[in-house]
């Protein structure tokens, strides 16, 4: 009876932190996944069976890197059964990986890249802009803590539940988490668009000499601010969304906005 040990899982956990190291245009994270499960393969197989197992895990694979954890767990459980004589064809294990990677990436991308990282990073940046070392440290610790917990418990959970995980992936829980994360992410994005941008249009519309000797200067910006502070960044954001939906590379949009900045500054329409 072959049994995976605690240390096998520990080393798989450690290695899975390097899952994307050999990301390539042909099979993406294939080699990375194989690299991650090597402690498992080493424990369970030798000789020709080992060669077969390595080949099996060098097939095309790609998902959001943190949600690979439960897939590694399920695969470990199946490999353990297979090594103990249960008849599981190669295609079933691969089918499971390919079947889970899509839905899990659909959950992992909005949660981690859309919510967790933007929020922890902007929180860190808010301190960093004042020159405080606390900002980078906060971001690094917070993000990695969340990430490592997901990795560690993901592998554990996948291994313990085995193929039952597939029912969970299709179920409500993940959808709830994704939707909740999206709400949080969008809410904070709304706040950032308003607070963490600055557009200033200093064109003077009227200068009124008041009775008490002071002058009241009305600029275009004053009017915008009375209407709704942050209106121009909001409109710019929607313009960017529209352009990206039309497949314009974001880096070109950035260059475009730089050009707008230079022209605006040069002509005096935009100020610091």
């Amino acid at each position: 009876m072959k049994k995976l040990t605690k240390s096998d899982f520990f080393w798989t956990f450690v290695r899975s932190n390097f899952a994307q190291g050999s990301w390539n245009m042909e099979r993406m994270q294939a080699l990375g996944f194989c690299f991650g499960v090597i402690p498992i393969i080493k424990r369970l197989y030798s000789g020709d069976e080992r060669k077969q197992a390595l080949k099996r895990h060098l097939e095309f694979y790609n998902t959001q890197p943190f949600v690979t954890a439960p897939i590694i767990g399920v695969v470990s459980a199946m490999e353990e059964q297979k090594a103990n004589g249960k008849d599981i064809p190669d295609g079933v294990i691969n089918g499971l990986k390919v079947g889970m990677m899509g839905p899990l990436a659909g959950v992992g991308d909005p949660i981690f890249w859309g919510t967790v990282r933007p929020i922890t990073a902007s929180l860190g940046a808010s301190f960093a802009l004042g020159g405080s070392l606390f900002g980078p440290i906060l971001f690094f610790v917070l993000f990695n803590l969340i990430r490592l917990l997901v990795r560690w418990y993901g592998i554990k959970y996948g291994y313990e539940k085995g193929t039952d995980v597939i029912a969970d992936v299709a179920g409500n829980t993940l959808q709830k988490i994704t939707e909740g994360a999206s709400i949080l992410g969008l809410f904070v994005m709304g706040a950032l668009v308003n607070k963490w941008t600055s557009v200033h249009v200093p064109i003077v519309i009227s200068t009124i000499q008041k009775q008490d000797g002071t002058t009241a200067v009305t600029t275009v910006q004053t009017i915008f601010d009375q209407l709704m502070p942050g209106l121009i960044p909001l409109l710019l954001t929607f313009m960017c969304i529209k352009l990206m939906k039309n497949k314009v590379n974001p880096i070109w949009i950035i260059f475009g906005l730089f050009a707008v900045g230079i022209l605006g500054y040069w002509s005096g329409i935009l100020g610091m």
């Binding site: 969008l186 200033h200 707008v260």
Partner: peptide, 29 residues
């Protein structure tokens, strides 16, 4: 000019996050 642009160039990043969510029905938030 680049410094001026720095004030609003960040919206590109925000737009990328919003686009990735693909959840138009949650935009009220």
């Amino acid at each position: 000019g680049l410094q001026v642009a720095g004030g609003f160039i960040v919206v590109v990043g925000y737009a990328m996050v919003i686009n990735m969510m693909q959840a138009g029905y949650l935009m009220p938030f």
